[in-house]
C-alpha cells in the first residue's frame, strides 16, 4: 500500500521517463516518429509475402492470424528481455539518488505498451482494409486483455530487471529464452494444432491465454471464453504480485551490486 502511494507521488517521473523514451527513440532519424508505424507495417508486408506466396500455411488470411498475435507478443518479449537491463542501464541514477526503484521497470514496460498501442492503429487499419468483420462486443474485451498483458509483462520485467543487476548474464540468456518462448506460445500456430497430450503444458504458459484472447477478438471476431479471460487475469495478477515481492527484496542492494 505504501508502495502504491509512493509510486503515485512519483507518477510524473514515470510519465516523463516514458515521454523521454518515446521522443528520444527516433530522434535524429529523418522519418522520426513515423517509424513507430512504418516498422510494423513493413513487418506485416514481409509476413504477407512469405506466408501467402512462398509458404502457404492452410490458415485463412494467415498474415492476419499471425500479426494480431505477434504484435502483443513483441510487446511482451521486449518488456522481458529488453527490460532486463532497464535498471542496470540507469546505474548513475540508482547509485546517486533515491526514487522508488519500481519506477524504472514500470516506465520501460509502459513505453513498450504505448508502442504496442500505436502498432494497433496499424492492425486496425489493416483489419478494416482486409474486409474482415469486426465484432464490436468482442472489441470491448480488448482493453481488458491489454491491461492483463500489461500486468503480466510488468511482473516478469520486474523479476528480470532486478535479477539482471545480480547476474549480468541474464540479459543475454533472456534473449534466447524469449525466442524459445515465442515458439512455445501459440503465436505462429493455433492451440488446436498442438497434440492433445502436451496441451496441458501449453496452458501452463502464462502467455497462452493472452494470445488466444487477442486472436479471438481480432481474428475470429468473437468474445473470448470466460475461462480464457479468467485464466489470463489470474496469471497476470499472480505474476505481478510475485514480481513486486521479489523486486522489493532485491532492490535493497542494487546500489552495492553496481
Amino acid at each position: 500500500m505504501k508502495l502504491i502511494k509512493e509510486l503515485y507521488a512519483y507518477r510524473e517521473m514515470i510519465f516523463s521517463l516514458v515521454k523521454r523514451d518515446l521522443k528520444g527513440r527516433y530522434k535524429g532519424s529523418v522519418l522520426g516518429f513515423l517509424w513507430t508505424f512504418i516498422n510494423p507495417l513493413l513487418q506485416l508486408l514481409v509476413y504477407t509475402f512469405v506466408f501467402s506466396t512462398v509458404m502457404r500455411m492452410g490458415i485463412e488470411d494467415y498474415y492476419l492470424f499471425l500479426f494480431v498475435a505477434l504484435v502483443p507478443w513483441i510487446f511482451f518479449s521486449t518488456s522481458v528481455s529488453g527490460g532486463a537491463s532497464c535498471i542496470w542501464a540507469q546505474q548513475d541514477m540508482v547509485k546517486k539518488i533515491y526514487f522508488p526503484r519500481e519506477v524504472l521497470p514500470i516506465a520501460f514496460v509502459t513505453s513498450q505498451f504505448v508502442n504496442m498501442l500505436l502498432s494497433f492503429l496499424v492492425i486496425f487499419a489493416v483489419l478494416i482494409f482486409s474486409g474482415r468483420t469486426l465484432n464490436p462486443l468482442a472489441l470491448l474485451c480488448l482493453p481488458v486483455i491489454m491491461l492483463v498483458e500489461y500486468l503480466l509483462a510488468l511482473g516478469v520485467a520486474m523479476i528480470s530487471s532486478a535479477a539482471t543487476v545480480y547476474i549480468r548474464d541474464l540479459e543475454y540468456i533472456l534473449g534466447i529464452v524469449t525466442m524459445a518462448w515465442q515458439f512455445l506460445s501459440p503465436v505462429m500456430y493455433s492451440v488446436d494444432q498442438v497434440p492433445e497430450e502436451i496441451k496441458s503444458i501449453f496452458y501452463m504458459n502464462p502467455m497462452t491465454p493472452v494470445i488466444i484472447a487477442y486472436r479471438d477478438v481480432l481474428y475470429e471476431g468473437k468474445v473470448p471464453e470466460l475461462a480464457t479471460l479468467l485464466h489470463a487475469v489470474g496469471v497476470g495478477v499472480g505474476l505481478l504480485i510475485i514480481g513486486t515481492l521479489l523486486f522489493g527484496k532485491l532492490k535493497k542492494h542494487f546500489a552495492e551490486e553496481m
Partner: peptide, 10 residues
C-alpha cells in the same frame, strides 16, 4: 521537467 520529476515532484 524530467529532472524535477525524479525528485518526486508532480
Amino acid at each position: 521537467y524530467t529532472n524535477a520529476s525524479i525528485f518526486g515532484l508532480t
